[in-house]
Design a protein around this nucleic acid. Structure first.
Lengths: 211, 211
DNA sequence: TAATAATTTCGACTGCAGTCAATTTTTCCC
DNA sequence: GGGAAAAATTGACTGCAGTCGAAATTATTA
C-alpha cells in the first residue's frame, strides 16, 4: 500500500472513531464537525473529503454495523425453523441494535427510508446484502409450503419489511414501548401470513384451484 | 376578536403563505427564514414565535392539507365498495398529493414517521382524525365478512399503513416510478388480505373453528 | 536527485438556523 | 385618559455546516 492510501485509511478511521465517540458522548447536535476534526487530528476540510455531510458519518457507521449483524445472522440462522420465527429473529436483532443508540438509528432510518433526491445513490449493494439474507429463508419457506409460491419474493420481503417499518415508527413516536415491540411484531407477522380476511371466505374457490 | 388575536391570525397566515410560496418557488434549502420574514412583512423573531423550527412550517402545512383530504374522503367515500378499493382510494389520494410536492412530502414523512424525541407531542389528535376516516370502513368490512373480526382495528390499520409506508419509501428511493405505485399498492393490499401463506394450509382447523 | 504533476489537507470564510434582551404594541385597571 | 402590566415584535448576535482556493504532501518523470 502506498503512503497515500495508508494515510487515507488511517485518517478515515480516525475521523470515524472520533465522530462515533463524540456523538455517543455528547449527542449528534452537540458535536460539531470542527470538534470531530480536532479530535481526529485533522483539519475540518479533511473530514469533508471523506464524508459528504455530517449525517453521512452516522449513515456509514450504521451501514457497517448492519452488515456485521447480517453476516452474523446468515451464519447463525436456523434454516429449519418457521419463516415466522426466522423473520422475527432477524428484525428483532436489528431492532435491538437500534435501541443501543436511538439517535443514530433515527438518522439512519430517516435517510435510508426517505432519502434526499441527491443521495439516491447505489442502493443496490445494500439491497443485495439484504436479499442475500432473506431470500434463502423465504425460498425454503415456499418449499416447505409455509409461503405462497405465486408471490414474488421481493413482495414477500416488502410485507415483512413494511411491518418492521411501522413498528419502528410506532416505537420512535412513542406509541409503543420497547417491551411491546416483540409481541406486536410477532402478532403483525403472523397476521400477515394468515391474511386479514376470514379464511373460509374463499375456501370453495381455493379448494378447486388446488389439487 | 381582540386586536391582538386578529394580528396574530393575520401574521401567522402571512408567514405561512410567504413560506409556502418561497419554498415552492426556490426549494426548501434555498429559502431562508429571513426571506420568509421579509416577504411576510415581519421580523425574523416573529416567525419563530409562530413556528418552532423551519421544518415545522412545512409540517403545519402538510397537516392542514392532509386534514382537508381526509374530510373530502369522508364525504365522498363509497361505503359499499370493498375494503380493498376504499383503502386504495384513500392511500392513492394521499400519494397523489405527495407527488404534488415531493420535497414537502419527504420532510413531513421524515418528521412524522421518525420524529425527534423533542417533538413527540400530541399525535393523538392527528391519529384520531385518521381513525375517524378508517375505522368506519374497516368496521363495515368486518360486518360484510371481508375482514377477520378477531383482529383489532388498530392492527388492521397498521397493516395497510405499513404497506403505504413501504411504497412511499420505494418511491422516494427510486425503486419504483410514479406509474408503478398504484398497481404495486393494489397487489400488496390484496396479498395482505389473502395472506402470505397458502390458503389450504389450515382449512381443516379453520373449518372446524367456524360454525 | 530535481523538477513537475497529481492529490490531499487545511482553515479562513459564507450563509443561515435559531436565541434573546431590548423595544414596541396591546390590554387592563383606576 | 393615563399609567402600569402583559404580550408580541424585533434584529443584532452566536455557533455551526458546508465551501473553496491556497498550501503541503505524495507520486511521477527525466
Amino acid at each position: 500500500m502506498s503512503i497515500r492510501e495508508a494515510k487515507k485509511q488511517k485518517n478515515k478511521q480516525a475521523i470515524f472513531e472520533a465522530a462515533i465517540a463524540l456523538f455517543s458522548e455528547n449527542g449528534y447536535d452537540n458535536t460539531s464537525i470542527e470538534n470531530i476534526a480536532k479530535t481526529a487530528g485533522v483539519g475540518k476540510g479533511t473530514v469533508y473529503s471523506y464524508f459528504q455531510t455530517k449525517k453521512d458519518i452516522i449513515k456509514g457507521f450504521c451501514e457497517y454495523e448492519l452488515e456485521k449483524i447480517h453476516q452474523e445472522l446468515v451464519k447463525n440462522s436456523d434454516q429449519d425453523t418457521s419463516v415466522l420465527k426466522q423473520m422475527l429473529t432477524i428484525y428483532m436483532t436489528e431492532f435491538h441494535h437500534v435501541t443501543q443508540n436511538r439517535e443514530f438509528g433515527r438518522i439512519f432510518m430517516r435517510e435510508s427510508v426517505f432519502p434526499s433526491d441527491s443521495d439516491i445513490e447505489d442502493n443496490s449493494q445494500t439491497d443485495d446484502k439484504y436479499f442475500q439474507l432473506l431470500f434463502p429463508i423465504l425460498e425454503k419457506g415456499q418449499a416447505r409450503g409455509e409461503l405462497r409460491k405465486d408471490i414474488d419474493l421481493l413482495y414477500i420481503t416488502a410485507h415483512f419489511y413494511s411491518l418492521y417499518l411501522v413498528i419502528m415508527s410506532a416505537w420512535y413516536t412513542g406509541r409503543i414501548t420497547t417491551e411491546e415491540v416483540e409481541p406486536a411484531m410477532g402478532l403483525l407477522f403472523s397476521q400477515a401470513l394468515e391474511g386479514l380476511q376470514p379464511k373460509n371466505e374463499s375456501i370453495n374457490e381455493n379448494v378447486k384451484n388446488n389439487e
